[in-house]
């Protein structure tokens, strides 16, 4: 087949359009389902229905939907911002400052990536319970503030940050914090975007830990609320579930699309560097 010229341009695009339609079909379907009644969803209706308002009311009537959404937004945004600040400073420090123990510390941090959450769940629960932090934002936030992945990501990115700039800034009298805020952060925007997208997705979708430490029904998050909806006895309301799924997916989608350009730069940039 000839792949040059207008004809191939048409075919390539046709193929890509078909692929993107197939990929987006589940999302479109979720949105369609969220406007239908549960029975219509089960009967496989593929057209928009008029039940959106009713489904929304069903979710609100649970008394858990709005608090869960609010909690998810507050917990995830706070955790993401703090985690990115702390981890980027740590990653930066690993490269810029000299210490003999640096590599050993980094190795230990990386090792922690290999321990699954489930393995430390019980001791962590005890720890947080003794500190009386259950059902507080600290229980949600503290374990994910400094993650090995983020520190590693920022360490790798910092290595491509020219040391001359730091030297020059020091000579010009800029303090260490100011070098970090005024020089490092602005140049590392793509890496920050990547870190924000990844951390937000991880914290927004976190399930096991929030499930165990947020036992108060008014403190739960969206994934735990979703799990509850899908388990509402032998007759789940699929219309309402799909609406909740749509609402749960939206924030990550928005964050991703808003930062899409620099997110991809951040990923490819780290390979180039």
């Amino acid at each position: 087949m000839n792949f040059s010229g207008k004809k191939s341009y048409f075919w390539r695009h046709a193929l890509l359009i078909v692929c993107s339609l197939i990929t987006s079909l589940p999302f479109v379907w979720i949105i369609i389902c969220s406007t239908n009644t549960s029975v219509d969803v089960l009967r496989g209706r593929l057209t928009l229905g008029s039940n959106l308002g009713v489904n929304f009311q069903t979710l609100v009537d649970t008394g858990r939907f709005l608090p869960a959404f609010k909690n998810s937004v507050i917990y995830s945004v706070t955790t993401t911002l703090l985690a990115v600040c702390i981890s980027s400073a740590a990653g930066y420090g690993f490269v810029v400052y000299r210490s003999k123990a640096k590599d050993t510390v980094m190795a230990v941090i990386l090792l922690s990536m290999m321990i699954p959450t489930a393995a430390i769940l019980i001791p962590m629960f005890r720890l947080f319970s003794r500190m009386k932090l259950l059902n507080t934002i600290f229980a949600f936030m503290l374990p994910s503030l400094a993650t090995a992945f983020l520190i590693f990501l920022f360490r790798q990115a910092s290595q491509s940050f020219p040391g001359e700039i730091i030297q020059a800034a020091r000579i010009d009298g800029l303090g260490e914090w100011m070098i970090f805020f005024r020089m490092f952060i602005p140049t590392m925007k793509p890496v920050y975007s990547t870190a924000i997208v990844m951390t937000f997705m991880n914290t927004w979708n976190a399930f096991l830990w929030p499930l165990v430490v947020m036992t108060d029904s008014q403190k739960t998050t969206m994934p735990v609320f979703l799990s509850l909806l899908t388990d509402s006895g032998y007759t789940p309301d699929y219309g309402a579930i799909m609406l909740a799924v749509t609402v749960t997916t939206l924030p990550t989608l928005i964050i991703f699309f808003a930062l899409q350009k620099s997110f991809i730069n951040g990923l490819t940039g780290s390979v180039k560097g």
Partner: peptide, 16 residues
């Protein structure tokens, strides 16, 4: 009265 999914109840109780 608080609604907690079946498997989630068992997870929480197992951990506790």
């Amino acid at each position: 009265i608080e609604e907690v999914a079946t498997s989630d109840r068992e997870t929480r109780l197992t951990v506790a």
